[in-house]
Simulated assay, not measured.
Amino acid sequence: MNLTLNWITLRVRDLEASIAFYHEILGLPIQRRFESRGKQIAMLGSDGQPKIELIQAPSDEPTVQPENGVSVGFEVESLENAMEELRHQGVPIARGPITPNPRLSFFYVLDPDGFEIQLAKHHEL
């Protein structure tokens, strides 16, 4: 079986706040917005890359709790530049930077629903 990741779905409380975070702060392009079965949905991400699917959960439907271990990771060109840019935009660093080994450094921020977003830099040795 040859699999390719298409998207990761996050059920969010406020679609507009989540779009603002992923599009305006992280810079993911909005591929499309639509409604399906009464739910508002947005797909974000670059062409040829897996997408983040944001689904606004109805108020009577529980969202996935961030403490259940859901996180989303992105690669950045410079950890320092990413941290500086996020701080400048008022996004606090939740954890890190962490360097578990010489090949990897990363830090976490939280999205509007509290999901951990990991920004990582892989280093060549």
Rank of each mutant, 00 (worst) to 15 (best):
R103N: 06
A17L: 12
H23M: 01
Y108W: 09
V76H: 14
I117C: 09
P58W: 10
G45S: 01
H123D: 06
L10I: 08
E85C: 07
P92F: 11
E84N: 12
A20H: 15
D14E: 14
Q49C: 09
S46N: 14
A82W: 01
K39S: 12
Q118F: 11
P100L: 03
Q89D: 10
S105K: 10
H23P: 00
P112V: 02
P62G: 11
Q31W: 10
V64F: 15
G69E: 02
P92M: 07
A120E: 14
L10C: 13
P92H: 09
R95P: 06
S105A: 10
R11E: 04
S46P: 08
E75I: 05
L54A: 01
G90V: 03
E16Y: 09
G96D: 07
I55D: 06
F115D: 01
E75D: 10
L54V: 02
N6C: 09
E67Y: 12
M1N: 14
F34N: 03
N6T: 14
P29E: 00
E35H: 14
W7G: 11
R95I: 11
E53V: 09
Q89T: 06
I8H: 08
L15C: 08
L54R: 02
H123Y: 07
D47K: 08
Q56M: 06
F107D: 03
E77N: 09
A82V: 02
Q89N: 12
E80K: 12
V72T: 01
K121D: 02
S46K: 15
I41H: 04
E53P: 05
E116C: 01
P50G: 05
L54F: 02
T63A: 09
F115I: 00
W7D: 13
I8W: 06
K51I: 02
F74H: 03
Q40F: 13
Q118T: 14
S78I: 03
S46L: 11
N101T: 00
H88N: 15
N6S: 13
S78R: 05
S59T: 10
E16P: 13
T63L: 14
L3F: 14
Y22M: 05
P102K: 10
E16M: 14
A120G: 13
L54W: 01
L44F: 01
L86D: 07
N6H: 14
R32M: 04
A120P: 07
S18W: 01
N81D: 15
E75H: 08
A82F: 01
I93S: 07
R11W: 04
L26C: 05
I41G: 03
L44A: 00
A57N: 04
T63G: 05
Q56E: 13
K51R: 09
H23A: 02
R87C: 09
